[in-house]
Design a protein around this nucleic acid. Structure first.
Lengths: 199, 199
DNA sequence: GAGTTAACCTAACACTGTTCGGTTTCTCAG
DNA sequence: CTGAGAAACCGAACAGTGTTAGGTTAACTC
C-alpha cells in the first residue's frame, strides 16, 4: 500500500493513539510496531511523522503538562500554591502510566519551564528570596510527583494473608487497593496542606 | 570454558557488579550481556544464579532499602518522622540511578513493608488514627521519593541562553547544576520541615 | 573409578527502535 | 496535458534486548 489518497497518519493521530495505548497497556506496552499496527500501518511509516520514540513521548508529555494551570496567584501565594499543585496533580493523574517517563527524563520541557517561571516569580514578589522560592517550588514538585507516581496505595496486595502475620500494624493494608484512588487523593491533600501551612 | 575450578559467579558478585554498572551508566546502561561481560562470562550463565533481570533489580533494591532506619521513634513522633525520612532519602540518593526503578514497580518489597509497619505503628501509638497514620506515611513517601527522583535541580541546562529570554524569573537557572546536590538537599530539608511542622 | 550435578558455553527465539532503498500516488509547474 | 518532484507508505535489514534449550566439561560424591 503506497501513498494512499488521504493520508492515514498525522502527528496528532499518532500522539493520541500512542497515549491511548499507554493508558491501556502501560508505558512498557507501547512499541512502535504495536502503535503502527493500531494505526493500520507498518512501523517504518511512523518515522515520516515522528523523529524518534523518545521525541514522541516528550511531545505527549508536553501536551499533558500544558493543562497545568498556574494562574491562581492573584489571590495570595498560599492559595496559588494549592491551586497550582492540584492542577499539576490532576494533569498527571489523568494519565498515570506516563508519569514514570516524566519523572525520569530531564525537566527541560518548555511547558514545565514556563510554569515554573510563573510560580517562581509569584513567590518572589510575595516576599520570598530567590533561593527560598526555588526550594518551595522544588518541595511542591516533590509532593506532586511523589503522589502522582502513586507508589503507595496501589501496589499493595489484595490478599490479607500477605500482611497479617508479618506486619501487625498493616493488617488492613489489603483493603488499600479498593480505596486507593480516594486515599491517594486525601493523602495528597493532607501532605499539601501540611506543607503549605508549615512554610 | 566449562565449569571452572573456582566459580566465577555468585548472586552477591552479580548484584554488586550490576549495581556498579547502574551507578556508572544509569539504569538503561545495564544489560545482561554487558553485566556478563563485566564478570568475564557469557550472558546465559547469569541465569543459573538469577531468575530474571527484574528479580535481580528487585534484589538490589531490597538491599538498598534495608539500610533505611526507622528506629528514631523512641524520642517522639515528629523526630521519628524526620529521622526516618532522612535515612530513607540517604539510602536512595546513594544510588540515584536506581530510584526510577523503585518508583516504578509495586511497593510490595518486604523491606519497604517492614519499615512501613513500624512507622505506622509508631504513629498510631502517638495518638493518630489509623487512617491519619496511613496518610502521613504516604505524605512522607511523597517527599522522599519526589526528592530522590531529583527531577529538579539536575535536569536544568547549564547554558544561560536557554532561560534568560523566555523565562525572566529563571535567569539564574543555569547555575543550578553546579549547586544541584546542595540545593536538592536543602529543598528536601525545607519540604520535610514544613510538612512535619504543618501536621 | 563411575555417576551426578554444577557451572559454564553456543545458538537461537522473539522482541525492540531505527534506517535504507524502493514503489506508488499525489501535487504542481510549464 | 505532460513531466518533475515530493509525499506517504512498505519490505527488509541492523544491532541491540531478555531469555531459553541443549551441549560440554570439570568438580564433587559414593
Amino acid at each position: 500500500m503506497p501513498r494512499p489518497s488521504t493520508p492515514l497518519l498525522s502527528p496528532d493521530r499518532i500522539r493520541s493513539t500512542a497515549l491511548a495505548i499507554i493508558d491501556r497497556d502501560g508505558l512498557d506496552g507501547l512499541s512502535m510496531r504495536k502503535l503502527a499496527a493500531e494505526l493500520g500501518v507498518q512501523a517504518a511509516s511512523l518515522y515520516g511523522h515522528v523523529r524518534t520514540k523518545d521525541q514522541l513521548l516528550n511531545d505527549i508529555a508536553s501536551s499533558i503538562l500544558s493543562a497545568v494551570d498556574v494562574t491562581g496567584f492573584t489571590v495570595d501565594w498560599r492559595e496559588g500554591l494549592l491551586r497550582c499543585a492540584r492542577s499539576y496533580r490532576a494533569a498527571l493523574s489523568s494519565h498515570p502510566n506516563i508519569v514514570p517517563f516524566l519523572a525520569y527524563g530531564p525537566a527541560g520541557r518548555a511547558e514545565s519551564l514556563q510554569r515554573l517561571d510563573l510560580l517562581h516569580g509569584a513567590l518572589v514578589s510575595a516576599g520570598w528570596s530567590r533561593r527560598e522560592a526555588t526550594m518551595i517550588a522544588a518541595g511542591l514538585m516533590y509532593i506532586v510527583f511523589g503522589s502522582a507516581l502513586s507508589t503507595f496505595s496501589s501496589g499493595f496486595s489484595a490478599d490479607p494473608a500477605d500482611y497479617s502475620d508479618r506486619y501487625p500494624h498493616l493488617d488492613r493494608a489489603h483493603l488499600l487497593p479498593g480505596v486507593a484512588r480516594e486515599l491517594d487523593r486525601d493523602s495528597f491533600e493532607m501532605a499539601l496542606a501540611a506543607f503549605v501551612r508549615g512554610l
